[in-house]
Nucleic acid binder design. Sequence first.
DNA 1: CGAGCCGTTGAGGGGATTCAAGCTCAGTGG
DNA 2: CCACTGAGCTTGAATCCCCTCAACGGCTCG
Lengths: 244, 244
Amino acid sequence: MTLNPTVTAQAVQPPGRDSQAGACASCALRERSLFGALAPATLLRLHAEIARPHLKTEGRLYARGDPGTAAYTVRTGIVRLQRLTPAGERRIVRLAGPGDLIGLEALLGQPYADEAVACTAAQLCRLPRQAVADLLQLDAGLAPELMRRWQGALDQAAVWSTDLACGTARQRVLKLLETLLCLADGCDEIWLPRREDMGAMLGLTVETASRVISRLRREGVLRPLPQRRAQLDALALAAALSAP
Amino acid sequence: MTLNPTVTAQAVQPPGRDSQAGACASCALRERSLFGALAPATLLRLHAEIARPHLKTEGRLYARGDPGTAAYTVRTGIVRLQRLTPAGERRIVRLAGPGDLIGLEALLGQPYADEAVACTAAQLCRLPRQAVADLLQLDAGLAPELMRRWQGALDQAAVWSTDLACGTARQRVLKLLETLLCLADGCDEIWLPRREDMGAMLGLTVETASRVISRLRREGVLRPLPQRRAQLDALALAAALSAP
DNA sequence: CGAGCCGTTGAGGGGATTCAAGCTCAGTGG
DNA sequence: CCACTGAGCTTGAATCCCCTCAACGGCTCG
């Protein structure tokens, strides 16, 4: 089974106008970003090397096994990391939202461990391996920050397996909605995955995911909107989560 | 629910005779260990600071939330990392065997994210946060090696969730046995977890784990031995894994 | 010897899967 | 314009796997 076969080529674009316009120093994400702690001078130097590719919905950033040339910071949108189970089924291992760093293994010269695909339209920062290696020499503060990112991903993986892989289908879907609400900063409108994607995240079948979502819709927890979006009733969600 | 409530105090022992006798340079694990790439001189310096605590079966190394004072290398035995699900159930997130590094978050000054408990008797190397920090200044080769460890743990977490969290109870148990066979280097004798631990690893109940193991015993895949050990028929295991 | 833990096995019920059919909706081309 | 198509979502019915509840035996240990 091949996944998103032909999108890779157009996915990564050369740095455009906007990458010149806004420096990393003024990036809205700077506080949450990898380089938030760097000195302004090094930031400027870095900025020249950073491309800011865009991804369309379902566009693939890289495939598992691709030579790892760069890590990426997600600036906007949601990117999923997925791989195949031994049985040949797709399994989504992680969701990355704004501020998250993906493809860290590339910084070690390793091939990508997962396939990265955009769930929504997404804007990224591309951090070439060599540029990061150079920065590591210049600024001693970067290495610990990088390690913190690794630890964060590790911790998120543990939470994923304790929260989203346990309990009934209803509980898992509710937990997922909670997660998606965190990824959609601000309002109560979230990205609502395709049922098949929900299944791949939660270890459920398409039909089960559909049944649960339909029931939540009837209960008023959820209101599907066009374009794979949905409006969440945060209170009803919390109530459903606390109820057995 | 409290887990292994009172074992912590005796778990970590001061460096004993054997920590003086064998230097890190002659450690059997050196190739696989964190410091394998270090220069002999730095190794000597490091060695003075490293304690080598022992853990008895079911002895706790640290609890979730404890201030992270040191990371640990597992020299012998198997250590499990577990945490509680939101529903209050225990979930085993990872197994660490010889050569594995656990408690990495301590190196960042963070509290431990999981509870670490010995599945079998275990020997460890204790790597104090400060000692590692000092070494990071001295040897530039250590930082990437450390990052590789983080990446390895992350990758293992992904494999765990794709391999051990999918499929029928039988398939999951078989995958677990395969994993345990890798952790028991050499012979065909493995550590066979308590049924409740199997459940906590695979997301199954005690009874289901027991039923599956009993059937595998009747089929000749497995032969339980005293002291929570078992003899595996590697061929039969492989056959059972490849069969649907 | 009783208490407690662990493993095993059985019976019953429930939740998820499987198989199947029908639905909406967007895109296509006659 | 509209049938045609295919992808995705929904729903139903039957099945199956796992969970729950329960009972029992082996074993260690106080």
